[in-house]
Amino acid sequence: MSDEISEKLKNYRTAPFDARFPNTNQTRNCYQNYLDFHRCNKALLAKDQDTAPCEWYRRVYKSLCPVGWVHKWDDQLEAGTFAGKI
């Protein structure tokens, strides 16, 4: 993993501003980062590469999303009923 990414993860406190989601309601930001994390993992695992860069998305969605939503989405992923495209 590059030093720049590891430094950002080390200094991570909370989700930074994302220009795609300028409004106060961060629901879409939460959901998008959840999808991005799983897409990143899927893509890197398919190439047999290290999934450490995907950690950024996980930290962002963990800081934005309610725990109940994440548990529900994880259960849906395991059951194959998740509505998002990963």
Rank of each mutant, 00 (worst) to 15 (best):
H38K: 09
Q76N: 07
N29S: 07
N23A: 08
D74T: 14
T51Y: 00
S6G: 01
T81H: 02
N29P: 00
Y31G: 03
K8G: 00
F37L: 06
D50A: 12
D48T: 12
C40M: 09
F17I: 14
V60Y: 01
E78R: 15
R39T: 11
C54Q: 05
V70N: 02
E4I: 15
L45P: 00
F82C: 10
Q49D: 02
F82D: 13
L77M: 15
D3V: 15
K42S: 10
Q26V: 09
L44P: 05
N23Y: 10
G80Y: 00
R13K: 15
S6T: 15
S6K: 15
F37A: 11
D18P: 07
K47A: 15
N33Y: 12
R59G: 02
N29V: 02
C65F: 06
I86H: 02
F37P: 04
G84W: 11
G84P: 05
S6R: 15
D18I: 12
L45K: 15
Y34H: 11
D75Q: 12
C65N: 05
K10A: 13
V60R: 11
L35M: 12
P53F: 05
D75E: 10
R28M: 09
S63P: 02
G80N: 04
W73K: 11
K62Q: 13
Y34G: 04
R13H: 10
Q49P: 00
Y61H: 14
L35C: 10
D18N: 14
N11Y: 05
R59E: 03
N33A: 03
S2A: 08
K47Q: 14
D48Y: 09
T14L: 01
W73E: 10
S2I: 07
A79I: 07
W56G: 04
W69C: 03
I86S: 00
K8F: 05
S2V: 07
K85F: 06
E4C: 08
K72R: 13
K8A: 11
V60P: 05
Q76S: 09
S2G: 10
R28Q: 11
K10L: 12
R58Q: 13
N23D: 08
Y31P: 00
P16H: 05
Y61F: 15
R58V: 06
K10E: 08
Y57G: 01
D48C: 06
D74L: 12
K47N: 09
T51M: 07
